[in-house]
């Protein structure tokens, strides 16, 4: 019984609102980015090859990069999701009752057809109760108020999910490399300033993982360039 109570309390807390599917995707991706940034910063903090003096700069720089990446991604995606959900709501509001019923019926019929065949075919009991929940008199009859609500919720959810996808694509394919570049520029500047007499060999471990891997191109073993820092941060970077 204790196990069930525990599960119920979890379920109560994570009871998912169907219209917030996009926000769920955003939050889970943001959690992944947060853990990744945290792990990278932690790895930099415990790296034995880095001096204490350099760590004073590298660790906050790593943390700041993570915060900037996460903050921009979260705010931007949240805004896109909210815009698209509002847009979906407006489209629903524009529909007259007949159009709404027609669209909801098509949606319900499609869902029923999908449940009846294919790889993920559902049980008899599921299909029967689905039909009963969505239609008043069989799949060709009038649809229920619940089916209309389901359609409305799913249109809003679709808007939110589309927003989450757009945000993820812009954030992870465009923003992350740009933020990484800017961060690399400052790290490079700091290293040059604080270590004017240091040799390139001494700095290899900062910038290029390929210095440890002889099977890769030797031309890549070129420290103190933004590109090599990118190689390092990209190959070392966690992606969850």
């Amino acid at each position: 019984m204790a196990k069930e109570n525990f599960i119920i309390s979890i379920l109560k807390k994570c009871n998912p609102d169907p219209t917030k599917a996009g926000n769920l995707l955003l939050n889970l991706n943001a959690l992944g980015i947060l853990f990744a940034a945290g792990s990278n910063t932690f790895a930099a903090a415990i790296d034995k090859n880095t001096s204490k003096e350099d760590k004073k700069f590298l660790v906050p720089a790593g943390a700041a990069t993570g915060v900037a990446n996460l903050g921009i991604y979260y705010l931007m995606t949240n805004r896109i999701i909210s815009h698209l959900k509002n847009s979906a709501q407006k489209e629903i509001n524009k529909m007259d009752t007949l159009t709404l019923e027609k669209n909801a019926k098509t949606y319900a019929q499609n869902a029923l057809k999908k449940a009846q065949k294919g790889l993920f075919k559902k049980s008899e009991e599921y299909i029967k109760s689905m039909e009963k929940t969505l239609f008043e008199n069989g799949s060709e009859g009038k649809i229920t108020a619940k089916a209309i609500e389901l359609y409305k919720d799913n249109v809003k959810a679709a808007g939110g999910v589309l927003g989450a996808f757009i945000g993820a694509v812009i954030g992870c394919s465009i923003l992350t490399p740009i933020i990484r570049d800017v961060s690399a520029y400052f790290v490079q500047k700091h290293m040059k300033k604080s270590n004017p007499n240091i040799t390139n060999d001494d700095l290899k471990h900062f910038y290029t993982i390929t210095s440890l891997n002889n099977s890769l191109n030797s031309q890549n073993k070129m420290p103190l360039t933004m590109k090599n820092y990118m190689n390092y941060s990209s190959s070392q970077g966690l992606k969850i």
Binding site: I92, M95, N110, N154, V155, A157, A158, G159, V161, L162
Partner: peptide, 13 residues
């Protein structure tokens, strides 16, 4: 165009 496409709405949602 999305709200009219039942398949796309279901896939996204």
């Amino acid at each position: 165009p999305l709200v009219k496409n039942a398949g796309l709405v279901a896939a996204l949602a």
